[in-house]
Design a protein around this nucleic acid. Structure first.
Lengths: 166, 166
DNA sequence: GTAGTTGCAAAGTTTTTGCACTCTT
DNA sequence: AAGAGTGCAAAAACTTTGCAACTAC
């Protein structure tokens, strides 16, 4: 994904956010602006803790609840996407609707890679149609071991994080 | 899925369970036997609460912890599969490894249908290979509105259950 | 008898909510 | 000034764990 695409995605996200904020009559507070900025700058999959840490680096007084509440708005505005890759924590990523991608997660090092596959999406549409569903969303997660994890030394990134599915 | 297949799946599950129990030196207690029986008889996607209710109908003294602990064993033995379809509760279903299927969930009535698609599995393998992953597991969930939900009356099964993804 | 199992209650996690105070509009 | 937004702490929802009593082997 090139830098150009990322920049324009962010610009679009900002427009969507502005429209959403206006429609919902949201007020522009420092905390909210800060959280949105940090979120839109981010490229990975972050827990609320992760994001709060980044936020507090710039404003130590921000509370958990505000991050949760702001993320809820971002999800609602279709700018953020929630996922929990087999474990108990919810992770948030910046993802506009039309940029849909899926994930492959390394069970050893917990790296999360993204991929897109048009063919699978087409098959999904066909399946939904066959079952008389109007498809609105989907979630595809692949779990495996990445190349580094396969070596005898194991993946150097491997840490004991909370449970991924067996 | 015919009754024959289900019966043989159950028989296979019982064999796997017996082998697992032996390997782990698990003891055969009334509670554990009861929970396993109820779980193996079940065909849907149940929360711990659901299962505990069924268990307590036959033995009211069984505690949460025992159900959690037994399900953990069943997951470990690859007889049960955990999923959480966008909400916060973990659901368990009886699923042997080689019977893998995916789910389509109605956002209105929360019905959960199962499907299998060989083509998608092949594409997944190809994607994982391309990214140098050894694939171990996957999770595909489609979210949409079922046929009944599309009528102007809405789906009659619709209830306000906790949040599904937007 | 030994050691795995159970049920209870307490503790842990993650997320939501009530409330007094603050800040935007 | 009105009321949306914030931070804190308490509550909620779900799951795990410590422990004394129990039970399979």
């Amino acid at each position: 994904m090139g830098a150009d695409l990322k920049i324009s995605a962010r610009k679009r996200a900002e427009k969507i956010w502005a429209a959403y904020a206006k429609a919902q009559a949201l007020r522009s507070t420092n905390q909210r602006t800060l959280i949105c900025d940090i979120f839109l700058e981010s490229t990975g999959h972050y827990t609320v803790d992760d994001l709060l840490a980044k936020v507090r680096a710039r404003d130590p007084k921000v509370g958990y609840a505000t991050v949760y509440r702001t993320l809820k708005h971002l999800v609602d505005a279709n700018i953020a996407r929630e996922s929990n890759f087999g474990d108990t924590v919810t992770r948030y990523e910046f993802a506009l609707d039309d940029q849909h991608h899926d994930h492959i997660i390394c069970l050893d090092c917990h790296a999360i890679l993204e991929f897109e596959n048009e063919e699978i999406e087409i098959l999904q549409d066909r399946i939904a149609e066959g079952l008389h569903f109007r498809l609105e969303d989907h979630r595809l997660e692949l779990f495996g071991r990445c190349e580094l994890a396969k070596t005898k030394k194991g993946c150097p990134r491997a840490k004991d994080k909370p449970g991924m599915p067996s």
